[in-house]
């Protein structure tokens, strides 16, 4: 429990305890229990190994291990450099930056919903919405051809693949490459411009004044990037949109 947490009212009850033995002892017991479970499991359940690899008979769908299926699912919506490099880097960098971005001590050492609705909402959105749900989609909803199959649908029914994908600019009747480039630039700039717009609108609020523009800029960039992922997923699933911004160098 940190110094910011509410103090115990009862006399004689310590507010802090030593790591040894109180925490380490529990961790040791949990480690032993986990090892016992894994040992029994590995003895009782056979590893699901398949036959010898045959290049003429590849499995369909070919799925990554379950813990990577969220990443494999994100690859449907983004180019590999975004899904495999940029997004993981943003996740790790964002997690590292949390103590810098959010110095609010409320909620340290005790559970609360009322005092930290935005922080908890953001965490749940990222954890459940951007991690757990893509894993579940990849595991349960992707069948042959990586097509979407609901859990109650049979994989024996072949689904035609959507071979024709479009860019967001096509939805608005802009087909020329220069027009599509400019349209995408406007859309992406406008999306990330929501942060500065919010700053200008609320700049007199005590929260933003305490936060400072640098901290706010980093936080709004991370927040908008995070919120953009499900938007892009919806565009792809709903309208077959492959790219929001097409450039000669990269595509988003």
């Amino acid at each position: 429990m940190t110094h910011d947490a509410p103090r115990s009212a009862s006399a004689g009850t310590p507010d802090t305890v030593s790591v040894w033995p109180y925490l380490v002892r529990i961790e040791l017991l949990v480690t032993l229990a986990a090892m016992a479970v894994l040992t029994v499991w590995s003895i009782v359940v056979d590893a699901p190994l398949e036959g010898i690899a045959d290049p003429n008979r590849t499995p369909d769908p070919s799925k990554a291990p379950w813990y990577f299926l969220g990443l494999q699912e994100v690859l449907v919506y983004f180019d590999p450099w975004i899904a495999g490099v940029a997004i993981p880097l943003l996740i790790v960098g964002g997690l590292i930056a949390i103590p810098y971005l959010d110095p609010n001590p409320r909620g340290n050492g005790y559970f609360t919903l009322r005092e930290r609705p935005l922080a908890i909402g953001t965490f749940l959105f990222g954890f459940l919405g951007l991690w757990i749900i893509p894993i579940l989609i990849g595991v349960f909803c992707r069948g042959p051809g990586w097509n979407w199959y609901w859990p109650w649908e049979s994989w024996d029914i072949a689904k035609p693949q959507d071979l024709v994908t479009i860019n967001l600019s096509d939805l608005f009747g802009i087909h020329a490459s220069s027009g599509a480039f400019a349209f995408g630039a406007v859309v992406v700039t406008a999306w990330y411009g929501l942060g500065p717009a919010w700053w200008l609108w609320k700049r007199r609020s005590p929260t933003l004044a305490r936060m400072g523009w640098r901290r706010f800029a980093i936080m709004s960039f991370l927040f908008l990037s995070m919120a953009g992922i499900p938007l892009k997923m919806a565009l792809r699933l709903g309208w077959n949109v492959k790219y929001v911004w097409v450039t000669p160098w990269f595509n988003i």
Binding site: R7, A9, S10, D15, T112, L113, R114
Partner: peptide
């Protein structure tokens, strides 16, 4: 805990 905070009994949260 939120109920305790609403009742201004933050000191009881640890307990």
């Amino acid at each position: 805990n939120d109920r305790l905070l609403r009742d201004e009994r933050a000191s009881d949260i640890g307990e």
